[in-house]
């Protein structure tokens, strides 16, 4: 693959990855949020795919397909089911309003750029230059997790972080050793299942997934 096209394609995928992450802050409609998350899963798979094609690495390509299937297929499907069961499909009152969140996201992008300097400097390459994109999504995911009140929004925040970590792993090192990779994927899947079960349980005992209701435990 000629180098210029590789860089362009990689950055295009990273751009899509970033945009879908940031758009999550923008949308209140949880169905749209889930769709964005699925799109981000595709973008992540595309990033891995481009890297695999560049390195001519079949194993990496297969991992990319697996990541895509998990993050653009299974996880969004699970979340959509949880949403359909709950019937509440809007993020009503985030702790930080949407406009402010968007401005905060811009600041987070700058922060991500600043903290990723050492990474880029250690091994300057098109892939490591895109690490700030992943870190921005990580911070955005954290922000979503902290400021959103619906159980499902928090799950999406968590998954955004996880996507970002995965993206960082592939952009910096083309992935951690396979054993760890499998363990990590399994753990994430299980964590999601736990959250899925808990979401249903919250709905059963609190009558909704607005986490403002979770106020019984305090000092």
């Amino acid at each position: 693959m000629p180098d210029l096209t590789y860089t362009e394609l990689l950055y295009l995928a990273c751009g899509a990855f970033l945009l879908t992450g940031v758009m999550v802050l923008w949308r209140r409609d949880l169905r749209a949020v889930i769709r964005l998350f699925a799109l981000q899963g595709l973008a992540l798979a595309a990033v891995i795919g481009v890297l695999a094609a560049h390195q001519g690495d079949l194993e990496l390509a297969l991992v990319g397909i697996g990541v895509g299937a998990l993050r653009a297929g299974l996880l969004p499907y699970l979340m959509a089911r949880a949403l359909a069961a709950g019937g509440e499909d809007r993020e009503t009152r985030p702790l930080v309003n949407v406009s402010a969140s968007l401005v905060v996201a811009a600041a987070l992008a700058m922060l991500a750029y600043a903290i990723s300097r050492p990474l880029t400097e250690l091994a300057p390459s098109p892939a490591t230059r895109a690490v700030p994109v992943a870190l921005t999504v990580l911070l955005v995911g954290f922000f979503v997790l902290v400021t959103r009140r619906r159980a499902l929004s928090q799950v999406v925040g968590f998954l955004l972080m996880d996507n970002a970590i995965t993206a960082t792993a592939f952009l910096t090192t083309s992935g951690v050793p396979l054993v760890v990779e499998l363990g990590v994927s399994l753990d994430v899947l299980l964590a999601i299942l736990v959250l899925y079960v808990l979401t249903n349980r919250i709905r059963a005992s609190f009558g909704g997934t607005d986490l403002d209701e979770l106020r019984e435990l305090h000092d």
């Binding site: 990474l119 990580l138 954290f142 997790l145 159980a151 928090q154 968590f158 972080m161 996880d162 970002a164 970590i165 960082t168 792993a169 910096t172 090192t173 951690v176 760890v180 990590v184 964590a191 736990v194 959250l195 808990l198 349980r201 919250i202 005992s205 609190f206 986490l211 979770l214 019984e216 435990l217």
Partner: peptide
């Protein structure tokens, strides 16, 4: 108990997620 479990999973998973990023780096 449900509330505690939710808090526990979310906070610890996020924390441990940061650790994963640390491992990657």
């Amino acid at each position: 108990a449900t509330e505690a479990a939710w808090k526990y999973v979310v906070i610890c998973s996020v924390g441990i997620g940061l650790a994963l990023l640390g491992i990657v780096l």
